[in-house]
Nucleic acid binder design. Structure first.
Lengths: 348, 348
DNA sequence: TTGTAGGCGTTATCAT
DNA sequence: ATGATAACGCCTACAA
């Protein structure tokens, strides 16, 4: 029936009160007659009055909304967003999510759009295409709070919540070494991405610790993507330096690698070892089941949300916390050459 | 440096012009001196002026934003959201996404929040808990356009874009029958959910067509969830009426079923057949690879976006289109008993 | 305790 | 071609 949502003005008119009185009643302010308050609230409920958030935000220059910008919504990131969501909910904030689809352009557009007064700040994980941070510098200039997570923004001082990616690379590689592999290739992600490099760094550290010479030819930079990993693996397997193990920095890539390995007729873990990253659910249903490094995604998201809210409420635009959470290795069949371990994973 | 974002007022002052002139210049209105226009635009760019969307929306009562409410962001839904995103982008709309986390309460809260002038309309897939449509009726009353997709809202006239779920249930079941299975169980989702019932309906139709008596004991209603499916399958396998095939209405459930089947020491496809739903990527890496019904998720999302925008631009709040897209069966090892077909899937 | 008035940033109507 | 003014819905001094 009533086409337009009711405003305090409508309520005021119906009750022959002034707008400000109604406003006060609705926000249970101090100076207000309990009687008046009661009838106002009654009518408001009856009309199903809801304050216009646009007007509110315009007025108070605060939206109580956090803009979350993510490159995609894969398993890890959507879990992280759930974590952010939870932290936000607890603090009375709303989260709105935009995917950049790994596109720099869309990241810029999304940021700018949300920036035009739609959000109080940002929680950001950058796209793989993003190589500059110009579009984020404006956030600093305007003192708009933002926290980065997962993939952080290079060369920009801001609080961040991330995985210890070096550690992740390290434990995966060391595990392979301990299983007796020594020509270990790594499918790293795009060179421009910090997480790629950190995981690669961890890989190098593990090699070094175990006195294995680092061979650049065993490093492949390719997209975070099953198909790319497939072709990259094919190439590795055809090269003279055929590796005896592969560490991929995502599970999708591990799956691509696995396909290539199987097609080539090689057996895991005996002919070749394989470790992925992210520990997506049901990895242990594959045949062989795939070892993987797990990140505490939900916690990372929730922590990012908390850090954001804390800094926002404290009006703290300067201190840059850096929170680093630890990964955990899940060992499964694909990397478990040693017979003594093998029994554990027998299935069927 | 400049802390607050520049407004047209700032520009006007600097240029000793009136606010309205600046406004006109920026929207390249008709009556404006090209000269003036030029200097205004120049300064605007220099200051990196961006119109305040709150003020704009408040003024024109239009936000150019679509609120998308989804129960979660699993593979299927996040693909659908990508589709919505694409349609929105093409039409100059922004999409903001809220997850209800399958919770009725959060669905209500999210809807109301967004409704308070943050969005022009909604594209909705309901939570599994949602049994009433009261919170959506207000949309109709206020003539706020909305389109439903994937899981539609029961008993509410609105445009919808969905999969032909009956067909999905039908082709999966008929395939199993054709493979020689005849005691086919179905792990259906929650009874309250339309998609569960439709897929179940398709299952029944296939049985009927092939003169197999429908047995209610072979129908299990459980949550869309790997663990529930695991236990439900265990129970089925322990019952007197042990099925010789299982059709699950999601891949997650298929995985749960698979685990239970393997634990029980049964072999797929010979001892028991299995077909899932959604055709998530890498289903064919499982051992055995899992057959599944695919839905054109991206297309469903994009179509939902298009329908929304079309109706919105035409101010059409009455006609309710119903668009139904067709599923497709991907046959893999888990359901392929007939030897003649088996070769196709041999791997390694 | 209640009302008046001004302003948040923008557009639109009406003058000039 | 440009400027003044009201309005969108709300809040908040300040006045009554």
């Amino acid at each position: 029936m009533q086409n337009k949502p009711p405003t305090i003005k409508d309520i005021a008119q119906r009750l022959h009160l002034s707008i400000s009185t109604v406003s006060r009643a609705l926000r249970n302010a101090a100076d207000i007659n309990p009687e008046t308050k009661k009838i106002v609230i009654e009518l408001a409920e009856q009309l199903n009055y809801q304050p216009n958030r646009l007007a509110l935000s315009l007025r108070q220059k605060q939206t109580n909304t956090i803009g979350v910008i993510v490159p995609n919504l894969d398993y890890v990131l959507s879990t992280m967003v759930k974590g952010i969501d939870e932290a936000a909910l607890e603090a009375g904030f709303t989260v709105i999510v935009c995917q950049s689809n790994e596109s720099f352009g869309r990241e810029v557009v999304n940021t700018r759009r949300m920036l035009n007064s739609l959000v109080d700040g940002f929680i950001i994980s950058i796209s793989s295409e993003t190589k500059t941070n110009e579009h984020f510098k404006v956030l600093k200039e305007r003192e708009i709070p933002f926290v980065t997570f997962d993939r952080i923004i290079p060369e920009l001082v801001a609080s961040s919540v991330i995985l210890d990616n070096e550690e992740g690379g390290f434990i995966a590689t060391e595990h392979l070494i301990e299983q007796g592999y020594n020509k270990i290739a790594i499918l790293a992600g795009p060179k421009s991405l910090g997480i790629s490099n950190s995981r690669l760094e961890g890989y190098k550290m593990a090699l070094k610790k175990h006195n294995i010479k680092f061979d650049p030819e065993l490093v492949v930079n390719c997209d975070f993507n099953q198909d790319f990993a497939y072709f990259a693996t094919e190439e590795l397997l055809n090269s003279k330096k055929r590796p005896d193990a592969i560490f991929t920095i995502s599970d999708r890539m591990a799956i691509g690698a696995m396909l290539a390995i199987k097609k080539r007729g090689l057996k895991m873990p005996d002919d070749i070892g394989l470790v992925g990253f992210n520990n997506e659910p049901s990895l242990d249903l594959f045949s062989p089941s795939i070892s993987s490094v797990e990140q505490p995604s939900f916690e990372i998201g929730k922590m990012a949300g908390k850090v954001f809210i804390e800094q926002f409420l404290n009006n703290d635009f300067s201190t840059a916390k850096e929170i680093i959470l630890k990964p955990k290795l899940y060992v499964r069949e694909s990397s478990c050459k040693m017979t003594k371990n093998k029994d554990k994973f027998d299935r069927n």
